[in-house]
Simulated assay, not measured.
Amino acid sequence: MVSVSLTVNGKAVTREVEDRTLLVGFLRETLGLTGTHVGCDTSQCGACVVHVDGVAVKSCTMLAAQADGCAVLTIEGLAQGDQLHPVQAAFREHHGLQCGFCTPGMIMAAVDIIRRHGPGIDETTIRHELEGNICRCTGYHNIVKAVKAAAEQSGGMAEAAE
């Protein structure tokens, strides 16, 4: 067992976990934050994307102990109360979701993409950047539209207060 102390969605958290506990398991099972999904267990699908110290990571590839001392942002921490984050609002407005399983990971990846590329991001770059996130419903067209709209609307400032 190892003690892990981190900030999750702005709240300090300390827990004892097994050494081999993945960050996605820590978030879902230990903290009850089930918005981060486990889709493949092999880091291929991107359903588990969260931000660690402001950078998008696949939480199924990181041990909880590796996040010790870090700030973690999950889909649950993205909105400000009842006000959706601009990327969440764009996904809703442009129907960038279908079954919704990939949506949390897509949104978290999109926030990071917009942060890094800014408001002038083009469709080709968005598609390339989202290659690590799989939508089984093949809703990529509307997902790309949503990311582009969010980037344009936010002026590139789509990151949450991390």
Rank of each mutant, 00 (worst) to 15 (best):
N133E: 02
G118I: 03
S154K: 01
C70Y: 11
G39R: 05
R115D: 01
L73A: 07
F101Y: 14
G54C: 08
Q44F: 15
H128W: 09
T36A: 14
R136C: 12
T124Q: 13
G132Q: 02
A158E: 05
C102D: 08
R92A: 15
G25Q: 10
G77Y: 00
V147A: 00
V4Y: 03
H128E: 14
R15A: 10
Q83C: 07
H141Y: 12
M1L: 06
H85P: 02
G69K: 12
L84C: 01
T7V: 15
K11H: 10
E129I: 04
V147H: 00
A161Q: 10
G156F: 03
T103D: 01
R92V: 15
E131S: 15
R20Q: 05
I121M: 03
C40M: 12
E76M: 09
A67S: 14
I134H: 05
E152N: 00
I75Q: 03
I126K: 08
I143R: 00
M157K: 15
G69T: 15
V17L: 08
N9P: 02
V17C: 00
V57F: 07
V2K: 11
E76S: 07
C99S: 04
V38P: 02
H37T: 11
F91L: 01
N133M: 05
R136N: 13
A110K: 02
E18A: 13
S154W: 01
A89H: 10
S43R: 14
H95S: 13
T74E: 11
G105H: 06
G77V: 10
S3K: 10
R20D: 07
A146L: 05
N142H: 15
I75A: 02
V50S: 09
R136S: 09
L130S: 00
T42M: 11
A110C: 00
G96M: 09
G120S: 13
E162V: 15
G155F: 03
H128R: 14
N142K: 11
I107W: 06
T34C: 08
G100Y: 08
V55G: 00
E18D: 13
E159W: 01
V57L: 09
L6H: 08
L31N: 01
A149K: 03
A158G: 07
V52F: 04
E76D: 08
V52I: 15
N9A: 09
E16S: 13
C40D: 13
V17A: 00
T34A: 14
M106R: 05
E162K: 12
G100D: 05
E93M: 06
D19V: 10
A160I: 01
S3V: 12
N133W: 06
P104Q: 15
G54R: 01
S59Y: 01
C45A: 14
G35E: 06
I75R: 02
V8E: 09
R92K: 14
V38Y: 14
L33Q: 06
C48V: 11
A64K: 10
G105K: 10
E18R: 12
V13G: 11
E131M: 12
V144F: 07
D122T: 13
A12D: 14
A79H: 03
A90Q: 08
A149M: 06
V72C: 12
T124N: 08
G39H: 12
V55E: 07
L130T: 00
K148W: 09
